[in-house]
Amino acid sequence: MNPSFKFLLALIISIELSLKTSLTTNLLVIVFAVVYLLTQKIKFKSLLFTLLTPLIAAFTIFATLYWFAPQPNLENALSLSSRIYVYTLTICCVSIKTTAEELARSLEQNFHLPSMFAYGVLAALNIIPQMKRAVKQIRIAGMMRGVYLSFWSPVLYFKAILVALNSAENLAQGMESHGYVEGAKRSVIVAVPLKASDWLWSGVILILVNLALFTLK
């Protein structure tokens, strides 16, 4: 499916389930999301991590609404806590076979997202590994001088900000040297097609979710 449609579909489903309470629909979405992830050959370790990560948040919501509420309601507590898994798994379904670059290109080509924003997002994502290396180098350089820079040290983040500003300037110069002009029409290197099947699958999934949402409790 088209990356933009996958993202928009996950967003719509999440918003609809957050506005209307339906435990059965939440469970159906969770089951189908897990099945989809399995069909995409997700690693068992990654699936287990995805299921365990939101457990604390879901349990906290359930405990607050069921054990500490003046009038506990089991169905309401399960419905609201299961939303955490709905949000997590739907986003996981979007990201499992879609890279950030593919999503940015799709939003730019199919949803006419401004190229400046798309390229800015890609630049920010691609600079993250460089920033990690820079922070590691800063900490090592400090330890060689007998200065330990902890994770919450202001000095560490100040030096990291300086590195980021320098990298941003180099990136801007690099884009200009490659002919990037804001607002100018650009050619497409990697086309992201929008197929009729994308509309079909999106419509079918939305119809099924809404049918379950308004007919099941």
Rank of each mutant, 00 (worst) to 15 (best):
L208D: 04
I56K: 03
I42A: 11
R186F: 03
P70I: 00
T50S: 14
K195N: 10
A212W: 12
L113G: 08
L208V: 14
L65G: 06
I42M: 08
P72E: 05
A164E: 05
S202R: 04
I12R: 00
L38R: 11
T53G: 11
R145K: 03
L47N: 07
Q71F: 15
K185N: 11
M175V: 12
F32E: 03
E102C: 02
M143G: 09
I140V: 12
R133P: 11
A63W: 13
A63Y: 14
K136A: 12
L208M: 08
L156F: 04
T215W: 09
I91A: 03
A134W: 05
A33E: 13
A104G: 03
K6C: 00
K132E: 15
K97G: 01
F49D: 15
N76W: 04
V155H: 07
Q71V: 14
A10G: 07
T64P: 10
L80N: 04
V155F: 05
F151V: 05
V163T: 06
N73V: 12
V209I: 06
V209L: 03
Q137K: 00
V121K: 00
Y180L: 03
L19T: 13
L65N: 05
L78S: 14
S18A: 11
P154A: 00
L52K: 09
V181S: 03
A124V: 11
H178P: 11
A172I: 13
L11Y: 11
C92Q: 08
N76H: 10
F117V: 07
S187C: 00
T24H: 06
F117W: 12
F7D: 03
L48C: 14
I138P: 10
Q173K: 15
T98N: 00
V192N: 15
F117L: 04
N73D: 13
A100L: 15
N73E: 13
E101H: 07
Q130G: 14
V204G: 06
F68G: 15
Q109W: 01
A196P: 10
I128S: 05
V192G: 00
A124L: 02
V209K: 04
A196W: 15
S153E: 01
K185A: 08
G142H: 01
A57W: 09
A196V: 14
F62A: 05
G174H: 07
L149G: 02
L113M: 08
R105W: 02
Y66L: 08
V94W: 02
E182I: 10
Q109A: 00
L211C: 06
A10V: 15
G203S: 08
V163P: 07
L216S: 13
F117P: 03
G120M: 00
R83P: 12
P129G: 05
L48R: 03
V188W: 03
T90V: 12
F62I: 06
L78P: 10
L122V: 08
V147T: 14
G183W: 02
I15R: 09
W67C: 14
R133K: 08
G120S: 00
K41D: 15
I127H: 05
